[in-house]
Amino acid sequence: MSIKNNSGIALGIIFYLTVLSVSPVMAGSATVSDVSRELVCQCGCTMILSNCSHAECVPRDTMTTLIGQKLAQGEPPDEIIQYFVARYGEQVLASPPKQGFNLTAWLLPLAALLAGAGVIYAALKQWLWRGHSSPTAPMSPETNQEYQERLDKELTDFNESAFR
């Protein structure tokens, strides 16, 4: 594989990881809703905290009230999330943290895509080689002319009808 190809793959990986890192931005202006989207309601509904729509859900109300209080006290969103992790365990998080064993969840899809891309690259290379190396008999000018006319007609037909 050439340097150019390697650079392309490296750029692709960097782009993918950059995009992966685009998680909801929770700066100083984070709201209860921003933090709630990172947590799961503990009432058993299995929904994201901000999405739990139960009429009188005590766990949701307790958690959102606490988030509101902590934000009002100026606590950073990350610390608030860590507080809930310490209280309920990792299952309170809406997605696996990007560390330790959980990294496999984030990276395996990328690895599978790269492996697939590798297989496609190898197949394309082989098919291109086959396409370029298949023997072709030299054509006489008359035959060439006949095929050119036929090709033109088929291309015109294709524009109108051919997507199978």
């Binding site: 992966l20 994201i48 990792e90 998080l93 997605s95 696996p96 064993f101 969840a105 984030w106």
Partner: peptide, 29 residues
């Protein structure tokens, strides 16, 4: 992502949640 909670429970004994933030970030690109 769907079966990862089962894998996590089998490997680490912790059944974690894999929700919308994970799927949006991985599948978005």
């Amino acid at each position: 992502g769907t079966i990862f909670p089962v894998i996590s429970e089998a490997v680490r004994g912790v059944k974690i949640t894999v929700g919308a933030p994970f799927f949006n970030q991985v599948n978005g690109p």
